[in-house]
Structures are given as structure tokens and as C-alpha cells.
């Protein structure tokens, strides 16, 4: 059997809310090591990769490897029935065609149980090559979200340029053009307010803001976002999930044809 217990249902809610507009259906791959998920959007431009380590759960048991095919809109409907502080348990027997989702309120006075139908999905796994990224930026996720939202009002496409002093987000649209630069700031008192740049060489790539906006929906997962870029390869936008794992998004760049 498979059983995974999370202290806070809100974590699962945040993960599903972060990806459900990008991905309709996805396999949760469960093993002794934990839960992973890899799914592309329907245009094959972006990919999200989730990794939740088994030791990040309150209780975790997985007797044999399982792929649980889920419709994320339906999972989201069930998660709406959970209180943020509820304990959430995912459970399935081997060969079952449903996933049992239970929510227990902190004082155990309210227990909800749902059976979500599983679906058969073709696993379309992509091999992601190990990449030594030439430029990496860690910055506050709320700052990233705001920049992407603000630039989306001006144009459809955003350039991201990492230099030694910081990162510059540029946009062009019918009304004109603009940019927002965020300077490296490693002296901020709180770690989550720091902007850190690690760079072997300057990198500039161009991306569709539509997808970056989808990624920014993961902001509630944590205070930090990490961008990793190399010339002419997809950017990685990673939201670390404290003590459990991460949610990563890969986005193919726009390129001159």
C-alpha cells in the first residue's frame, strides 16, 4: 500500500494551485524515496517537476512503486474541502483505481474522507540533461511574482539578463518598452530578502511572460525563488519547499529563427 501523511493540507493545496493552470493531468510517481511528478503543458513549452522527499512527510509508506494518474482540477476541488491546518493523508491500496484523501482538523473533531478516481495516463517523461548553469539568481519569490505581473501588462515577452551586479527583466510592447533591474543584495538581514547572483558568464534569454506568470503562482510555497540560466537552454525556475523538496519549472526560451 501507499500512505503519505502531511501535517498541513495547505502545502498540497499550494502545490496543486501552482500547477493546475499549466497542467491538466499528471502522474504522481510514488516510491520509497518520496513522491515525484513531471508534467508538460499542452504546448510542450514548459515542464513542471515536483519532488517531495519521504522524510519530509509526517508518515510515509510505499511498499512498491506506483504511478497515480490524477486530474488536477478534480484534486483541487477535493482540496478546497480541507482546512489549511488540517492533517492530510493520501492513501491507496495496490491496484486500486481511487486515491483516498482524508483531512483531519487539528483537534480531530472533524474528519473528511474523499475517494478520487484515478486515471490512466501515458507517462511522457523527459530526460533532463545535467546542466552546469552559467548564471543563477536567488531572489524573494514575491519580488519575482510582482515583476512578472507588472511586465505582463506591457508586453508578451520578457528578457531576463543576469550580470554580475544583478538581474534585469526587460519588456517591449505596443506602448513602448521598459525594464526592472534587481541588484545583488547579500547584506539583507533576513535570508529570504537577499538577492544573490552566482555567475560564470552573463546570460540573457527571452521568454513568454504567459508561462512565467503561471510559474509565479507557486509563490505561496516559499519566500525564495531560484532562477538558473545558460545560453540557449530552458530556464529553471525553482521554488524550494522547506524541509520537503522543491517545485521546479522549466521554460524553453524564445529563439531567433
Amino acid at each position: 500500500m501507499f500512505e503519505a501523511k502531511l501535517n498541513e493540507a495547505s502545502l498540497l493545496k499550494k502545490i496543486v494551485e501552482a500547477i493546475r493552470e499549466l497542467v491538466t493531468d499528471a502522474n504522481l510517481d510514488c516510491s520509497e524515496a518520496g513522491i515525484t511528478m513531471q508534467a508538460m503543458d499542452s504546448s510542450h513549452v514548459s515542464l513542471c517537476a515536483l519532488n517531495l522527499r519521504s522524510d519530509g512527510f509526517d508518515h510515509y509508506r510505499c511498499d512498491r512503486n506506483l504511478s497515480l494518474g490524477l486530474n488536477l482540477a478534480n484534486l483541487s476541488k477535493i482540496l478546497k474541502c480541507a482546512g489549511n491546518n488540517d492533517v492530510c493523508t493520501l492513501r491507496t491500496e495496490d491496484d486500486a483505481d481511487t486515491l483516498t484523501v482524508t483531512f483531519e482538523s487539528p483537534k480531530q473533531e472533524r474528519i473528511s474522507e474523499f475517494e478520487l478516481k484515478l486515471i490512466a495516463l501515458d507517462a511522457e517523461h523527459l530526460g533532463i540533461p545535467d546542466t552546469n548553469y552559467k548564471a543563477q539568481v536567488r531572489m524573494p519569490s514575491a519580488e519575482f511574482q510582482r515583476i512578472i505581473r507588472d511586465l505582463s501588462v506591457i508586453g508578451d515577452t520578457c528578457s531576463i539578463a543576469v550580470g554580475k551586479d544583478g538581474v534585469r527583466f526587460g519588456v517591449e510592447g505596443d506602448l513602448g518598452s521598459g525594464s526592472i533591474s534587481v541588484k545583488q543584495n547579500t547584506a539583507a538581514e533576513k535570508e529570504e530578502e537577499r538577492v544573490e547572483v552566482h555567475m560564470e558568464e552573463p546570460v540573457e534569454l527571452t521568454f513568454a511572460l504567459r508561462y512565467l506568470n503561471f510559474f509565479a503562482k507557486a509563490t505561496p510555497l516559499g519566500p525564495i525563488v531560484a532562477l538558473s540560466m545558460s545560453p540557449d537552454v530552458p530556464v529553471v525556475v525553482e521554488f524550494p519547499i522547506e524541509t520537503v523538496g522543491y517545485l521546479r519549472f522549466y521554460l524553453a526560451p524564445k529563439i531567433d529563427e
Binding site: 523527459l126 530552458p234 524553453a252
Partner: peptide, 14 residues
């Protein structure tokens, strides 16, 4: 204007 590339250009099907 630059065009949108596909992930399949960079990542291979496992």
C-alpha cells in the same frame, strides 16, 4: 521577433 522553441529541442523523451 524570436519564435517560441519547444522543450523537445532540449530534452529527450526518456
Amino acid at each position: 521577433m524570436p519564435g517560441q522553441s519547444s522543450l523537445f529541442t532540449f530534452f529527450t523523451k526518456a
